[in-house]
Write a protein that binds this DNA or RNA. Structure first.
Lengths: 239, 239
DNA sequence: GCAAAAGTGTTATCTCTACACCCATGC
DNA sequence: GCATGGGTGTAGAGATAACACTTTTGC
């Protein structure tokens, strides 16, 4: 590495993705089955190496587009980096993990990578403790747990939940995001009052839909506010 | 890189530190004056390259001990990673930034690195917008801003403020941490009620001190709770 | 005594929660 | 009509903000 001290150890930089969505009202994570060693045959988080001239953020955007075909309608943020020297048996690989949230039932894995390589891709259900039924490769279980925890925490005080919804959504759809991600049942009436009362949180579209059944519900878009004050409080765990 | 695809680009991994403390009741950040190119003579965040067999976390701990001489009595957490390919003119250097909080008036920079190399080290005042009067090297202004914002946000719902205090501290000292970090003046009476009423937040030591003047104040240690519910709310910005 | 900081009491106001209740649709 | 989900009203509990007031020290 020219210009740098001799002692500097070179590492490979990977961008991995925790892509969360709702399938049938419950939280799922995007996983790919590994086709090569190490951890051949195991589920892993999608990701890949950062390329020349690319930031980790850009690499994550590229991977996300490759895996899901989704473009702009996804929320993407950096999660954390994982640099344990033993985390990858092939050598020194540092992963910059990212958290992505995609709308419910968008981009079904069946349709994914139609023209790409033939790796198996699936939405795996996420359990209450933020893990999957089958073990994940590398330290991806840890990364997934961190990602789920971040998503859960950010729902409280941010407009993040709308990232799980279509562009136009009803208050009920938004509430079901909270129910699914937190594993709770919020009171529909109080939730409605709270989110419609928070300034800048929801932009009324003016039209209604009956796609959820029952009485027609007003449609909203995400408002300009990115933080939510007062926050939506997660019900306390029963002692 | 054996075992990895040929196309993988090697990068150097750095661990940088946003070390915050209170000096005379206002927020300061630890900075070192660069003795070499690039950015020679400029202030920069302390940090260094991650060594063989070391994680970024361990490198940050090592750097922190080297710079401040402080050991365990510091809070240290990962902040974020910065991987813009142009962020370091010497080549591809990815920084895993960490946030450290050290007790007020501990480890004065004059006493630092007594036996180490002669680089100038100082506590620079942090302005309300999370920057310093003099420009910082590399993208360190951005990193500092992110670190300050993280610290401000975490005070609301975590026990982080105690990391700025000595092991045993008074409620008034804790409140002055909030005042300094948020740039506000919280009501001493309501603050007292709130923090002493939050279960698990403060452990009473049983003794008192008059080091802050006035009536003797009870001493506390950090309690077992790491999150604070209900949170201490930051007063809204005037419109 | 006086200043300073700690700590307690009080009250109006706001917020939250748990409901009762009505509304507008599909079937 | 009936089920389903949307939306409004309301009362009690609890949290908050503002401030009067007492306590205990140093000087």
């Amino acid at each position: 590495m020219p210009g740098l001290p001799d002692a500097v150890v070179p590492v490979a930089l990977a961008a991995d993705l925790v892509v969360l969505t709702l399938v049938d009202g419950s939280l799922h994570v995007l996983a790919v089955r590994r086709a090569e060693a190490p951890f051949i045959g195991r589920w892993a988080l999608p990701g890949g190496f950062v390329r020349e001239g690319e930031s980790a953020q850009r690499a994550a955007e590229r991977e996300l587009a490759e895996e899901t075909g989704l473009g702009s309608r996804v929320h993407l943020e950096q999660l954390a980096s994982y640099s344990d020297p033993a985390r990858d048996p092939r050598g020194r690989v540092v992963s910059v993990a990212h958290l992505a949230l995609v709308p419910a039932d968008d981009a079904p894995p069946e349709a994914m990578r139609a023209g790409g390589d033939a790796a198996e891709v699936a939405w795996l259900p996420v359990t209450d403790d933020g893990s999957t039924a089958e073990p994940l490769a590398f330290d991806h279980a840890r990364i997934l747990r961190d990602g789920v925890e971040r998503a859960r925490a950010k729902l409280e005080y941010s407009a993040l939940a709308a990232a799980f919804c279509e562009e136009e959504f009803t208050v009920g759809e938004l509430r079901r995001v909270y129910d699914a991600v937190w594993g709770v049942r919020l009171d529909a009436r109080n939730f409605h009052r709270k989110v419609t009362g928070a300034r800048g949180f929801l932009d009324p579209v003016g039209t209604t839909t009956t796609r959820d059944g029952g009485r027609p519900a007003a449609l909203f878009r995400r408002g300009p506010a990115s933080t939510l004050n007062p926050p939506i409080t997660r019900p306390p765990e029963p002692d």
